[in-house]
């Protein structure tokens, strides 16, 4: 069942990313990016991270994408790439470098036994990734990162 949900969500995420890459209109790109971010937030839910699911939706969908859409519409820069590309070798070079990057990842997967062997997590602990546990770690272990530099010296 998890695998079915993962497959559907992963396909949606990939479609969103590719459509963001190829669409000419920046508004459409921002909306496809929103689709991709929503799919990734569902994956967070599958990975026992309900707090991050909520944060992802609030911050990305509620703040960042809205900011993007706002700026795109404010500037009227939806179609800012029309006309011939001044750098002709850019597209083939980019495709080759991306193929090299994904090839490296596949190489690591094939050659590294720990990357694929028996890497299925079966123990589901109760309350993992819950807001309570996140807050507990955030305000004890990671308290230093939360405090501003001038107030960190007054730590107890």
């Amino acid at each position: 069942m998890d695998l079915v949900i993962f497959s559907i969500t992963a396909i949606i995420a990939i479609i969103g990313a590719v459509a963001m890459l190829v669409s000419r209109n920046a508004v459409h790109s921002a909306l496809f990016l929103l689709l991709n971010l929503g799919a990734i937030s569902v994956l967070f839910l599958l990975l026992q991270a309900p707090f991050l699911f909520a944060v992802q939706l609030i911050v990305y969908a509620g703040a960042i994408i809205v900011l993007f859409l706002f700026v795109v519409m404010l500037l009227g820069a939806e179609r800012d790439e029309d006309g011939a590309d001044p750098v002709r070798w850019q597209v083939p070079t980019a495709v080759v470098m991306a193929a090299l990057l994904i090839g490296q990842v596949i190489y690591v997967f094939v050659t590294e036994p720990t990357a694929t062997a028996d890497s299925v997590n079966t123990n589901i602990s109760e309350g993992f990734g819950s807001p309570t546990q996140i807050a507990q770690a955030l305000f004890t272990t990671h308290l230093y990162h939360l405090k501003s530099p001038h107030s960190c010296c007054s730590l107890p």
Binding site: A13, I14, A17, V18, M20, L21, A26, N36, I40, A77, D80, E81, D85, Q90, V91, T93, A94, V95, M97, A98, L101, I102, V105
Partner: peptide
């Protein structure tokens, strides 16, 4: 997804 992002940085001009 990271590769698609890299492609976006390399290919798009806006």
């Amino acid at each position: 997804l990271f590769t698609i992002g890299v492609l976006g940085v390399l290919l798009r001009r806006s």
